[in-house]
Design a protein around this nucleic acid. Sequence first.
DNA 1: ACCCAGGGTCGTC
DNA 2: GACGACCCTGGG
Length: 289
Amino acid sequence: MKAQEYVLDNCKSFEPKHIFECGQCFRWDKEIDGSYTGIFGNNVLNVSKNNNSIIFKGMCEKDIKETCIKYFDLNRDYEKIKLELSKIDDNLKTSIKYGNGIRILNQDLWETIISFIISANNNIPRIKGIINRISQKYGKEIVYNNKSYYTFPTPEELSKASVEDLRNVGLGFRDIRVYKTTQKIYNKEFDLEKLQQEKETNVIREKLLTLDGVGPKVADCIILFSTLKRFDVFPIDVWVRRVMNELYIKNEDETEVNKKEIEQLAREKYGNLAGIAQQYLFFWKRETA
DNA sequence: ACCCAGGGTCGTC
DNA sequence: GACGACCCTGGG
């Protein structure tokens, strides 16, 4: 474990604000200087942008360059994706202009599962607070720039927490869900490595749905934002429902718009890039709300 | 002070 | 398949 640095030049689709504030991750915070610091795996990283250069520095378990390429999905051509999506319609074109530097991260599967179980009927500041407290209590400390950071606990580490312990860090009614899912994964009743090898998106979704606290929305988020990484899903939350109704369906009573209608619309319009389209729309709608 | 909504899911009918 | 309940917190 040592401090390292990596500079990425001429990367067009990379805007820290867009990446870290589009709702896919909960452990990145803005610094006074405008850079972002986050924790993933056993790494603490600071990311800043200077003209067209992205500067990564921090404590990395392995080689920082390899770590960043994998986590930030740097080998994927977002210019091509954006071009393709922009052709679909003007709504998408506008939202892409707005969040042009979005990239979908390859986040740890286990951490993503627990994080999005916590996200249910919850708001982002509170979700971040809960995850921080869980990490402080059950994760490992990493010191960087004289500050303490805490890794997200492993299944083994989190399995030590009782339902009451979880309630005490502020999980609310999600305590039992996190507890049960943690036990299932820790004792291998639910095998994450096997899930990672699965090919069919629908098979992956069905399996995820067997976990406590994982419904359709959370399952799709896990599939999209983790190392499972499929773009042919379309997580529908209150914001996406809102924006899809506003742009295409135009029902006066938004609550009447059902998920089936939106799912079909997304599949028809966005196809196998629906997941990324969702992120541009979500970021755009939330930022301009 | 009070009310409401927040990246939904679960149990019950 | 619809419907209400659900911890807790920040913002109006």
